[in-house]
């Protein structure tokens, strides 16, 4: 036994102990979230950090039947995020293709403008956008959530790099065979670029799904609001800390996080590279 202990405590194993401790600490909040979603409110307040004393599905029952505002928010988020990804990927890939494969008047100027706007904090857009949307009746709509920030500069840079790597000879030979520019783009370039489009879509998903500030200001009608705006409302609307339905909130958090976590575990390398390699942090 002692020998085993010595073996485990070899200096070379220190890194494994460190990693184990770090992983436990880092995953502990997720453990609290998932375990808490199966607890009764009294169980959560008595034992917030441990396993449930008795597993209950009550919170999920409430989530799906009586307090459906969160599910509504979830569906809103799914719809808005999906449409946003489709729209922004289409717009951005077309724009990036023009930059990658064509020479045209004003290209350098446009490029500089795009580069310069990347420095502007997105919050700068809030006061004018709010006024614009209020005036055009776009507040409290899905449209504003989908269209609002669909054209962002960084996507052009990200996809342009990739499109530039598509060999010109392939495009030329398709042209000689009589394919139109749109056919070349949609049937040849896009399918060849699925990895880049995927990476872009992941980033866009992450931005839209997590977005709080913009929808919180532009969407006051909760039937159209995304999940991330509705969730914190459960904390503030009661005003009384003791009345906050924490177990329900945790069930909601678990419900929206599990699909993302599963997707992450399947696509981990792809997600990690696209969230870090482009080094665009929002």
């Amino acid at each position: 036994m002692k020998r085993l202990n010595n073996k485990l405590l070899k200096p070379g194993n220190f890194k494994y102990i460190y990693l184990l401790v770090a992983c436990i600490i880092f995953l502990f909040p997720l453990f609290i979230m998932i375990m808490g979603s199966f607890k009764t409110p009294t169980d959560l307040s008595r034992n917030p950090g441990g396993f449930p004393t008795k597993i209950t599905l009550e919170n999920y029952y409430i989530l799906f039947t009586s307090n459906i505002v969160l599910i509504r928010g979830f569906l809103n988020s799914v719809y808005v995020t999906l449409m946003y990804i489709i729209l922004s990927t289409l717009l951005t890939s077309m724009g990036a293709y023009a930059f990658a494969k064509f020479q045209f008047k004003g290209k350098d100027f446009l490029f500089m403008v795009l580069l310069a706007t990347m420095m502007i904090p997105k919050q700068v857009l809030i006061p004018p956008q709010y006024l614009m949307f209020a005036k055009t009746g776009l507040l409290d709509t899905y449209t504003v959530q989908i269209v609002g920030n669909a054209a962002k500069a960084f996507g052009i840079f990200m996809l342009r790099q990739y499109f530039e790597a598509v060999p010109d000879s392939i495009l030329e030979s398709a042209k000689i065979e009589g394919a139109g520019q749109w056919t070349i783009f949609s049937r040849l370039v896009l399918p060849m670029s699925t990895p880049a489009l995927g990476a872009f879509a992941i980033l866009q998903f992450n931005n839209k799904w997590n977005d709080f500030l913009f929808p919180a200001l532009y969407i006051r009608n909760l039937t159209k609001a995304p999940f991330m705006v509705i969730l914190p409302q459960l904390v503030t609307e009661e005003g009384n800390e003791l009345m906050v339905p924490w177990t329900l909130i945790l069930a909601g958090c678990t419900f929206v996080s599990i699909p993302v976590i599963i997707a992450f575990l399947f696509l981990q390398d792809k997600i990690m590279t696209s969230m870090t390699a482009g080094a665009v942090k929002e």
């Binding site: 992983c23 997720l30 979230m33 917030p48 992450n206 924490w246 929206v256 996080s257």
Partner: peptide, 26 residues
Amino acid sequence: PLIFLPQVIATVSSAMIFRIIFAKNS
């Protein structure tokens, strides 16, 4: 992936969990 995992949890959800971690009573 385990160390990266907190990154994929939405900020708002994380804030909710941390409110429970840091709460004064219980």
